[in-house]
């Protein structure tokens, strides 16, 4: 089985695909920071930020609704912000009864709640787009260029490479567990919770040992090819004038967003 479901990259010939990965990482981060800086209720700025996201979608050749479709991922977390609806002092909008509480939604609460959701929603779309137009190894190169410590980028590179191999192993283990814990219909399978936890724990332990032994073999393969404690990499990316120009343009647009948000 292949876990291509993990791969978020979509091969296309587009302006965004060709852009230097550093530019894409930087602009994404700046955009997300900008969203966090926008005050509550900066509707115009939010609107333009959304247009920025739409434009990015358009430039990616992935379709204008690409990131929108995948952006629900941040939604479950919205639950955590729901309390601001009732807790902010302000003009009461509507009151209702829930279990034993009388909850009053205030205008300030609503404003804040919606603002939080919009920020999250805009930010996650940009992050979605980033990995859709950038191959993950290039993203790792970008992090190297951006001075993320080598030890971390190396761990991330290994993690990315073996993510697929090890999740394959997990699913083999899970399948083996399933096929062995077939129960008589009607009766509960597989003992109590404790027993099931033990099976899961043993699986994790086994996976650990296999991974440990694998890392030994990988180490052998590395020293067989000249590794002696220091890793060398080629950084294949070079910023072109178009990359600089795009960065400057995007940053300028985001700056204008900030001004719009504070008028």
């Amino acid at each position: 089985m292949h876990f291509d479901a993990f791969d978020r990259y979509h091969e296309k010939e587009s302006f965004l695909h060709r852009l230097d990965p550093r530019v894409k990482v930087l602009v994404t981060v700046i955009f997300i920071v900008s969203n966090a800086l926008l005050p509550d209720g900066a509707w115009i700025a939010f609107l333009f930020a959304w247009l920025f996201v739409l434009a990015a979608n358009l430039f990616s050749q992935l379709g204008i609704g690409y990131s929108l479709k995948r952006s629900i991922i941040a939604l479950p977390f919205a639950l955590i912000a729901i309390t601001v609806l009732f807790s902010m002092p302000g003009k009461p909008l509507s009151t209702f009864h829930f279990l034993m509480w009388n909850l009053t939604i205030t205008d300030a609460g609503l404003l804040r709640f919606v603002s939080i959701l919009i920020r999250a929603w805009l930010s996650v779309q940009m992050a979605i787009l980033l990995v859709a137009v950038t191959r993950f190894p290039d993203l790792i190169h970008a992090l190297e260029h951006l001075r993320v410590p080598a030890i971390l980028t190396t761990i991330i590179a290994f993690l990315y490479r073996y993510l697929f191999v090890l999740t394959d192993e997990v699913f083999r283990l899970l399948r083996a567990r399933e096929s062995r814990s077939a129960a008589v219909p009607g009766s509960r399978s597989g003992g109590g919770v404790l027993w099931r936890a033990k099976v899961a724990g043993n699986m994790a332990g086994q996976l650990f040992l296999r991974s440990y032994e694998r890392s030994d073999r990988i180490y052998n393969a590395m020293i067989a090819r000249g590794y002696a404690g220091h890793l060398y990499t080629l950084n294949p990316h070079e910023m072109k004038s178009g990359d600089y120009f795009t960065t400057a343009f995007a940053v300028a647009v985001i700056f204008i967003l900030q001004i719009l948000g504070r008028l």
């Binding site: 993690l159 650990f208 990988i218």
Partner: peptide, 30 residues
């Protein structure tokens, strides 16, 4: 120097191990 591939594979291990679950009750899992 062995630590580099070890930490790398261990990161993948943690990632993969987070997918191991066991049913607790009522559709929830640990």
């Amino acid at each position: 120097e062995k630590q580099i591939p070890l930490m790398g594979v261990m990161a993948a291990f943690i990632f993969a191990a987070q997918m191991i679950n066991f049913p607790v009750a009522g559709g929830t899992s640990g």
